[in-house]
Structure formats: C-alpha cells, structure tokens
Design a binder for these strands. Structure first.
Lengths: 117, 117
DNA sequence: GTTTAATGCATAATACTCTTATGTATTAAT
DNA sequence: ATTAATACATAAGAGTATTATGCATTAAAC
C-alpha cells in the first residue's frame, strides 16, 4: 500500500482509507496527488502512499458513496478532487475513532509486563 | 487474520506477527491455542486471532529462524510450544519499537487540525 | 451415556489489499 | 533538450487474512 522509508510493509497495511478520510475531513477537498504529498510531508517521509494503492482505494470509496468527485481542468492537465459525502463524514469519524481505540488496545497489548507464575 | 467483535478487518491487518512476538518475549514459551486465548483475554475479545491466520504465521516465523518449537504430549493430545530464538528476541524488540513509532506517526496524522487558508 | 463445547493441531480455496511495473500526458526545471 | 515533477490510471503478481474444513482428544452439559 505504501512505500515506507521507515515502516515495514505489513505494519502499515489497512490504514490507507483511514488516513485518506481523516485528511479529507480536515481539508474539504483534495486530489490524489495532493494526498500523497500531504502524507509524505506530514510524516517526514515515513509513510509514502503509492499511486497503485491510492487510486483504486479512492475509486472504491467513491463507489461506496463515501466520496464524491469534481473534475477540474488546470490548463491542459486534469485534477480530480475528492470530498466527503454526508455518509463519508460519519464514516470518517467512525474510522478515526475506531483506529484510536485500536491503538489503545495495541498499546496495552505491547506494553504488558512479563507474566509471573 | 482475526475475528474482531470490535475492529474492522482491514484496520488490524499486519499486526499479527508483532503481537505474537511480544507475547513470546513476555512468556518464554507458548502454544498456538494459548496465544489465541491470551490475546482474546487481554483485549476483552476485541482482537480474536483465527487459527487460519495464526498457524501459517507461526510456521513462517519458524522457517525464518525467529521461533523454535518443542512438541509436548499432554495425555494423547499434542502441544507445540513456540519460543523466541536469539534472532527472534531482537526481531521482537525491533517489531515492537517499530510499531510504537508507527503509532506515534499515526496519532499525529489523525489528530491534525483543519488546515486554514 | 451421549451430545456439545472446548482444546489443539493443520491446510486449502477464496478474497482482499498492497507492491511493482507500466502507460499516457502536461508542465516546470536543468 | 532532457529530466523531474505533476496527475491520472490499470494490470500482474505477491502477501496476508477470512472462511471453511478436517481430524482428534478431553471436559462439560443434558
């Protein structure tokens, strides 16, 4: 899903949609390339979303009615802006809070001290 | 990989090996079924490792030289205990700290405030 | 006492998601 | 004039998990 100068492949799996939905909840509308750059920038290159992972994911989110699109011509170049639908806004909140909960669970699980006896 | 009364499938992907390695670093040796029960117990049923995910994963970790095995007969039933090799101990530390780092990155990414302007 | 649930291993078909590679095209930088 | 960056897209392959089985023993429930 990503290229990770830092994180191993398997570790990061499954977080793409959550990241995308969170960025879109903060930014109104964004286009694919912009998302890749934003994530790269915000994570100091630790997470780099690849296009091969992002575009299919955006398409499926649109097909699910979570994202809507708006195509804009910038000179002769095309940009496809994505934004959250009403459904998408609640999905975004759910995904982020679910992930936050999951992080708490994992934090506990990975901090557990040696079992005695 | 898991059944999750609580977490969605994609969210949890990729954490299985980290969880297993952490449990084994705290418990010396454990067998497969024991691992599934321990994770279930420690997470209040939020993460339930399925056998179809766990056993192939344990086998591949063994093949990589990260785990070693010891088969014990309990009556007529067989238990296969897994423990970390020397290599496995350092792999376990690396995986856990990598995940901790990843959680920090994600926490930042998912907490970012609306972009102005 | 007999059926069900729990313990304990294992694998195979399917599905899903990501990686890697490729393709097209425009615009900016060297 | 070439390379890098911008901007989209898809397809082949790989990896991992889900779901469904399968076998067998032991404990619990009825």
């Amino acid at each position: 899903m990503y290229v990770y100068i830092m994180y191993s492949s398997e570790l990061i799996k499954g977080t793409l949609k959550t990241i995308v939905l969170k960025l879109l909840s903060d930014n109104q509308k964004m286009y694919g390339y912009e998302i890749t750059q934003k994530v790269k920038e915000l994570t100091g290159d630790k997470i780099q979303i690849t296009e091969g992972a992002l575009y299919p994911s955006l398409h499926s989110l649109e097909a699910e009615g979570i994202l809507s699109t708006e195509t804009v011509n910038i000179g002769k170049r095309v940009r496809k802006y994505y934004s959250l639908t009403k459904k998408g806004k609640s999905t975004s909140r759910e995904k982020v809070s679910e992930f936050a909960d999951f992080m708490n669970t994992m934090k506990f699980l990975l901090d557990i001290k040696p079992q005695l006896g």
